[in-house]
């Protein structure tokens, strides 16, 4: 508990310093307000978009796409990763394809996605799906490969055969490491959500960025950017907390 409070204090100090430096640079530099908004201007835009309800609407739209894309990627990638993890011979053939697809930015697919599924919620959701899918898949496969062999022995000894072994032994044994992959994918997926929302949608934080640019509202632009950052930070903090509970539940160090 003390540690969390210390953490919170550090975050506050660090953000206060950032805002201070930002305001100082703004005052000293004599920048054009439209090119480099001051923190106060961005804050005003934040309040304004909050009051007219557009910010919350966009946040809700983004979170919905993110939740669907990310959750379905996790489910599919973990299931596929478990199966490929116990079939290393098959994975040998699947792996080159994965390695080919993985370095392609999910955004590169965006034109095709829009052609195939049209506009609306789907394209950004699919971009999030792709962004989360590969890291989770690969971390699941390697998690299964790293399971202590004793678990396989125990499963065989007690007659726990497939598919039960996958669900009862292999998945839980690999789970802490899988959770780690799920955690890392969260940040990546969030980064690509905003990018995915810059095409083919009329809502969401990514759309808010594009829309503000088109209206030359750099203050709103900055407010949107800060919101994206703040939610990313909150998501990361939440999953870190979940991660710690998992490590604890699996008998890791309880610090």
């Amino acid at each position: 508990m003390k540690k969390t409070l210390l953490g919170v204090r550090n975050v506050i100090v660090s953000f206060a310093a950032l805002i201070l430096v930002w305001q100082l640079v703004f005052i000293v530099g004599q920048f054009n307000e439209a090119l480099f908004p001051a923190p106060t201007t961005a804050f005003k835009a934040l309040v304004e978009t909050l009051q007219d309800g557009s910010l919350l609407e966009n946040i809700a739209a983004s979170l919905k796409r993110f939740a669907i894309g990310y959750a379905s990627a996790v489910v599919v990638a973990v299931a596929l990763g478990l199966v490929l993890g116990v079939l290393p011979r098959v994975f040998q053939f699947v792996n080159p394809i994965v390695q080919l697809l993985r370095p392609i930015s999910p955004m590169a697919w965006a034109p095709f996605i829009v052609l195939w599924v049209g506009i609306g919620d789907a394209p950004a959701t699919i971009v999030v799906f792709i962004a989360a899918f590969f890291p989770v898949l690969l971390s699941t496969v390697s998690a299964v490969a790293n399971i202590d062999p004793i678990y396989f022995k125990v499963a065989r000894n007690f007659g726990v055969s497939q598919p039960y072994a996958l669900w009862k032994i292999i998945f839980p044994a690999a789970f802490p490491q899988i959770a780690n992959g799920i955690h890392l994918a969260l940040g990546t997926a969030w980064v690509f959500l905003a990018a995915g929302e810059m095409n083919g949608v009329q809502s969401g934080l990514g759309y808010m960025v594009v829309d503000a640019r088109n209206n030359l509202r750099t203050d709103v632009l900055l407010a949107a950017i800060l919101t994206i950052g703040a939610i990313g930070l909150a998501l990361d903090a939440a999953i870190k907390f979940v991660d710690r509970q998992i490590v604890k539940a699996w008998g890791g160090d309880e610090q």
Binding site: I150, Y151, K153, V154, G159, Y164, I169, A173, W250
Partner: peptide, 23 residues
């Protein structure tokens, strides 16, 4: 085994039941 091979996500009762689930 020397290092027990218990399932850390199951409590004692559930660990002991493991072999009985697939008789």
């Amino acid at each position: 085994f020397q290092n027990y091979g218990l399932l850390p996500w199951r409590n004692v009762q559930k660990n002991v039941e493991l072999g009985l689930e697939h008789s």
